[in-house]
Design a protein around this nucleic acid. Sequence first.
DNA 1: TGCGGGAACCGTAACGGTTCAGTAAGTGTG
DNA 2: CACACTTACTGAACCGTTACGGTTCCCGCA
Lengths: 367, 367
Amino acid sequence: MVRSTNSRRPATLASLAAELGVSRTTVSNAYNRPDQLSPELRKRVLDTARRLGYPGPDPVARSLRTRKAGAVGLLLTENLSYAFRDPAAVGFLEGLALACEDADHGLLLIPANPEHEDVASVHSAGVDGFVVYSVPDDDPHLAAVMERPVPTVICDQPSLPEIDRVGIDDGAAIKDLARHLIELGHRKIGVVCMRLARTRNDGPASPERQSRANFHVQRARLTALSEAFAEVGVDWEQVPVIERFDHTTESGGSAAARLMELDPEITAIICTSDILALGALTEVRRQGRRVPQDITITGFDGIDDAERVELTTVRQPVLEKGRAAGRLLLDASESTGKPREVLLDTQLLTGSTAGSPRSVEERWFGP
Amino acid sequence: MVRSTNSRRPATLASLAAELGVSRTTVSNAYNRPDQLSPELRKRVLDTARRLGYPGPDPVARSLRTRKAGAVGLLLTENLSYAFRDPAAVGFLEGLALACEDADHGLLLIPANPEHEDVASVHSAGVDGFVVYSVPDDDPHLAAVMERPVPTVICDQPSLPEIDRVGIDDGAAIKDLARHLIELGHRKIGVVCMRLARTRNDGPASPERQSRANFHVQRARLTALSEAFAEVGVDWEQVPVIERFDHTTESGGSAAARLMELDPEITAIICTSDILALGALTEVRRQGRRVPQDITITGFDGIDDAERVELTTVRQPVLEKGRAAGRLLLDASESTGKPREVLLDTQLLTGSTAGSPRSVEERWFGP
DNA sequence: TGCGGGAACCGTAACGGTTCAGTAAGTGTG
DNA sequence: CACACTTACTGAACCGTTACGGTTCCCGCA
């Protein structure tokens, strides 16, 4: 493929204009405002461009001048590749991509290694705005985004002053789930949650660590759980909460095992994500316990796999979250002054992994 | 969050320099080459920057000057959001994202609506290179990419002169599968394939349409199938091939139904993707046929769900493909002159959805 | 006292476009 | 025939930065 004909340096708008003996403006207009020049001249410009291997106006130079990049940046908490492993994240991405597509914008995935303090990737992203998805509130990348003078939408993050936000009511959602379990009779429960801070902690999470968690979503869910169970007299201090840094089914499995080891009497394991719950389910069954007869397992998210195994969980509209975030960012009719907030509905999915706990006698002596 | 202190126009490197009474170069150096100025002055620069709300050098302007964007563009054939529905595509994305992450580059998803002829999105992408994934060979977006004077890697596409490429040997891979079926005794088969051209055609695909397909991968697989079965005397003209535009399980199901309607005697349905095969599986069972006793179903890709249902299929290293494409693009040690090519291995996965066809009598009268 | 050499900083010229206020020629109108 | 209006094109300013090749100053050393 021939990319330039006679010069070693690639053709530019200026060289093309020189070749044609017209002004740069005219060449620019040939591409951007066809009505500003005669059809004949325009054709001549375009033909010469082809002959010289001129690929059209340089996007970066254009961006500099027009002050728009035609792209939206996405910052997420995890290694970039992780986003593609978690079905909930993929759903969010899909929704965001849809919104971008509608607005004819690109979607720039920004590498933000959580281990690195290096925020250069945020500084070097040529975008018209950012979507920040579920990043710990003390992440330097988040701070770097906030410094950039472009609109930003946050999702699954605590409110920030003057920043648009989309999310769900995590607390209300998981309270529905908790009340369902309470109605079924569960009082001795265990919890498996995702990472609460940027530092690794695979094991029990003290109430203090829970309430200081940097991941808003996890903190909100745990707090709501404690409140819901407090209503029926459960002392949250006594409820074992196992934290896992990696968000995988393996993590869910090992956490469930740990939980049952810590307190064999628990009748339900509440997981703060479906992925963790699926792992817990597998582990519990591997140990020969039946679900829900011997133990109840619940998740959160409502991913496809969860539905497939009839997990009792909360469905949240992940795709809609992404789409809403994108729309908020790209919608020109903003500038209302006040930051906007979109809260989406969730739905309790009563599957077949939650049931009434059997009494202790039953558990020992069989039904 | 205060974004600029005293001026209405946002601060620039120049205004910062003026405020400080130093040259622009020095301010630039404060950010990019700390060793070029005294620590005290650097601190003064950075402090003043904070005070003025200067967010650091503008990424677009920097890109223009340095001629690098720190991002890789990805062009795919489908609506952007589609990429997130197909597990194989997600795997590819994950691999590519990994490679980008390693090189500290962003990954820009370029909206390329296949319906639109509009290639502006390609022209306005500020990237250092492109990865083109499974785009029909007559897609204008592909042509637009080729005109951009940046390195490009293609994947799951036919070779293009001077362009690096990564892929698998689709023909060899599916021939292995075909021979497996042939050994089992299948001679009357039907095929379900993905779209063969940019124009919608939900129905039978003539041999001519097959050989003229614009999607390289599909064409290669169909051609190889015809060759493999020709070796045992099967007349490909007689083999029904049902094409589906949308790549969904529903498509696979309806295509399988159509196939069985067209020729009730087929003993195997070969699908060119796992997604289609999963749909076919569901449909066939819905009709009360047992797999593999009554009919054999095969797929292609080796996605997780396929493994879960023990589909007989071909596993291809989707993640590795993405990673390889990214590495090829970002690897500085290029300029070898010759275009590079990476061909990855595939593996026949003999699951439980392929078996020996029963004789016609057995089929009519039971075993 | 003269001089080599590094540290610290600076001036200018790109980088490749877009934009806007013109200008000159052509067209229709009363 | 003067006037307004349109069409087709141009010139210069500007977008915000970094690359390149200096200059200045100070210090150590013979």
